[in-house]
């Protein structure tokens, strides 16, 4: 039999390949270095890759527990939910997208806001949840952020926003755009009152979120290697028809170009924020 006729059965059947698979979640492949790492090890390392220092995206609740003093967090506006006032429909109805996301997240929207303390210092925080429709900003996110800023103003507490968002939520069209103006206007008042606003940019922060409050921190602080930009890399590539330079729109690139004040690793974030806030508030 000629070698080219010698067709054996397919290398591995679907059934067999299933056998060698490990239970989901035990191992995680790092998105940055492709290393396969024991998931528990990543978790123990605050969801930072122990091999390459890539900072994995984490949930808002997880972030709050890493930054605020234990038990100090009191949530604001927890029950606020999005409305499909335009009856927007793409491949799926917005109404259904909201329902799915709310069920998955157990209520809420793409941001969690509230008050708490950082090493004893009272603050107001807003923390994005990228898992909720890509952290997109519609009316709910804009309204919660604005209320958080207003609360900081009223109570004379520093305001911190941890961003992780693809930008404005298309399904709320013009009203999503207006959230950029609304939240930035609230920051104008906070600034005039001399109350610190820290913007912490985490992977990814793009579009209308970057082009409003996220770039307006008295200090802009980034986590390592986070994608931060106005236009998405794909859009830019399509516009200019060129390949983008290495490291383009990453935290280190923004630091070099003067857009962020510092890059802070997750394990050091709380101590650094505390140090900054205590200096700015002379406490």
């Amino acid at each position: 039999m000629a070698w080219f006729n010698r067709r054996s059965k397919p290398p591995i059947s679907a059934k067999e390949s299933k056998k060698v698979q490990v239970p989901e979640g035990v191992w995680t492949k790092c998105k940055n270095c492709d290393e396969i790492i024991y998931s528990k090890e990543i978790e123990r390392n605050l969801n930072v890759c122990p091999k390459c220092d890539y900072h994995f995206r984490i949930s808002a609740r997880n972030r709050i527990s890493l930054v605020l003093d234990e038990g100090s967090f009191v949530e604001m506006d927890a029950g606020m939910e999005s409305v499909d006032f335009l009856e927007f429909k793409d491949s799926k109805k917005y109404k259904d997208r909201i329902k799915t996301a709310v069920a998955k997240a157990n209520g809420g929207d793409a941001i969690v806001c509230g008050e708490g303390t950082i090493e004893g210092l009272p603050v107001v925080v807003g923390v994005f949840d990228f898992g909720f429709m890509g952290g997109s900003m519609g009316s709910v996110v804009g309204e919660k952020i604005t209320r958080a800023i207003e609360r900081g103003h009223e109570m004379k507490k520093p305001v911190l926003i941890f961003s992780s968002s693809g930008g404005a939520r298309m399904q709320e069209s013009i009203l999503s755009l207006m959230q950029m103006a609304k939240s930035s206007a609230a920051l104008a008042k906070l600034k005039a009152a001399g109350i610190p606003f820290l913007s912490i940019l985490t992977d990814p922060t793009t579009g209308g979120v970057t082009a409003s409050f996220a770039m307006l921190g008295d200090l802009n602080i980034a986590e390592p290697k986070a994608l931060i930009g106005f236009a998405g890399p794909r859009v830019i590539e399509q516009t200019i028809r060129q390949k983008l330079p290495e490291g383009f729109q990453r935290s280190e690139y923004l630091l070099e170009h003067g857009m962020v004040d510092m890059i802070v690793r997750r394990p050091e974030m709380k101590a650094r924020l505390s140090q900054i806030l205590h200096i700015l508030t002379k406490s």
């Binding site: 506006d77 029950g79 606020m80 939910e81 999005s82 409305v83 006032f85 009316s139 709910v140 804009g142 309204e143 604005t146 709320e172 009203l175 207006m178 959230q179 103006a181 609304k182 206007a185 609230a186």
Partner: peptide
Amino acid sequence: KFRAMSMVEE
């Protein structure tokens, strides 16, 4: 004017 721009459910 801009403060009033939102539609949410509470």
